[in-house]
Simulated assay, not measured.
Amino acid sequence: MVPSRLLSSLLALPVLAFFSLSASALPRPRTASSTAALKLAVRINSYGIKNIAAADRARIQVLQAGGSASVNATNTVTTYTASIGVGSPATYYTLLVDTGSSNTWIGGNKAYTQTTASRDTLNKFKVPYADGSSVSGEEYTDTVTLNSDLVIENQSIGVASKTSGMGGLDGIFGLGPADLTQGIVDDAYEVATVMDNLYTQKQISSEVLGVFFAPASSDDSSGELTFGSYDASKITGSINYVPITSAYPANTFWGINQSIRYGSTPILDETAGIVDTGTTLILIASDAFNLYQSATGATLDKTTGLLQISPDQYEQLSSLYFTIGGITYELTPNGQIWPRSLNSAIGGTTDNIYLVVSDSGDSSGSGLDFTNGYCFLERFYSVYDTTNS
């Protein structure tokens, strides 16, 4: 396992992987060949609210209620975006990458350009946000271009007529399980996702998605999505697959079971939660958070909503250990702090040390007791495998 302090130079991550229990395809061998990659860009939000802990909690509360919460971009400090083509010839849109929702929609900042490939289904769509607002409009099917190797025909896309909180982004690129499309589009129980269509249209041989996020403090704060496989050059060690949890509501997302300890002290027994690119922080149940705060000696900073520690406390900080499927992943002290170069983006003081572990707002036992967000995924490569159920 690569120590987190070295990631800025090595940019090769330990890896964990999940499979969906809803797949019906026959098992196929997992290989690292024939990959098709899509580069991502990272954007640091300079607008909207500063309290990212409150924004993340609001999102998770919607998910705990069984909703499908898309990302409100103005409430997210660090966002990963992809340039996606729609139409033929393609018009390119900057879309936020979200594994916590599954519908793809455009029109938040840039108007939809129709071509001969565009077809209006006359169905309405509506996606709720975690803060209570929503995006709504009309469903179309159209050609979607991810890169020169990946072109999807007749992909369902939402064309927004009413949006809020997108902060200059054009829409959402939904990469969650297909179940999350239920109830989003009128007259359609469920719609085929981008990953579904890539597979059924034989653009990829296995319904696998590899996600690489470079740490925000590194020299290359970018990322990459790999469709149909994973990028072996980005990882160290072996791939460790775990099944989707059986606990609701985590099992409707990319949900897993894990336990967490701080140093040698257990703070969260094995329980269900989710891995989510649409959440910035690492959220844990309130009882676990209280144990973590006590162990670190941190105090709560009201401006950012984050825990704050002194330089002396940082020197005493222990690693966090996440055990998933019998494999333990170490998040070193460096991995637990918000990048100090980005303190101003969250309304913090330049030299302060803030922790990225925050309170989910509910006690353990909710069925969604943790969320491993960006700050976790920037340290560990993740693979999402639907085909190999």
Rank of each mutant, 00 (worst) to 15 (best):
M1D: 12
M1T: 13
V2K: 05
S4F: 13
S9C: 09
A12T: 11
S22G: 02
A32Y: 15
A32L: 06
T35E: 15
L38N: 14
K39E: 13
V42W: 00
V42E: 01
I44H: 11
I44R: 03
I49K: 09
I49H: 14
K50L: 14
I52G: 02
I52P: 04
A54V: 12
D56P: 03
A58T: 01
A58K: 11
V62L: 15
Q64G: 14
A65E: 14
S68Y: 06
A69D: 03
N72C: 13
A73Y: 12
N75L: 11
T81M: 06
I84N: 01
G85H: 14
G87N: 12
Y92C: 04
G100A: 09
W105L: 07
W105N: 02
N109V: 05
Q114D: 05
A117M: 02
D120N: 14
T121H: 14
V135M: 00
S136Q: 13
E139P: 03
Y140R: 08
T141R: 10
T143Q: 15
T145I: 06
D149P: 05
N154M: 06
Q155H: 10
Q155V: 08
S156Y: 13
G158N: 08
K162C: 04
M166H: 11
G168E: 13
D170K: 03
G171R: 05
I172R: 03
G174D: 07
G174R: 07
L175S: 06
D179N: 13
V185L: 10
Y189N: 09
M195K: 06
I204K: 11
L209C: 08
G210P: 02
F213C: 00
S217V: 03
G223H: 03
G223E: 05
L225F: 08
T245W: 07
N251K: 14
W254T: 12
N257K: 08
D269S: 15
A272I: 09
V275P: 01
G297M: 01
K302S: 15
L306A: 05
I309S: 02
S310C: 03
S310G: 00
D312Q: 05
Y314A: 12
S319I: 01
L320G: 04
L320T: 09
F322T: 04
G326C: 04
I327W: 02
T328L: 06
Y329K: 09
P333H: 15
G335R: 08
Q336V: 08
N343D: 12
N343C: 05
S344D: 15
I346A: 09
I346P: 00
G348N: 07
Y354I: 08
V356F: 03
V357T: 12
S358V: 10
S363H: 10
G365R: 04
S366C: 06
D369T: 08
F370V: 04
G373V: 03
Y374M: 11
S389I: 02
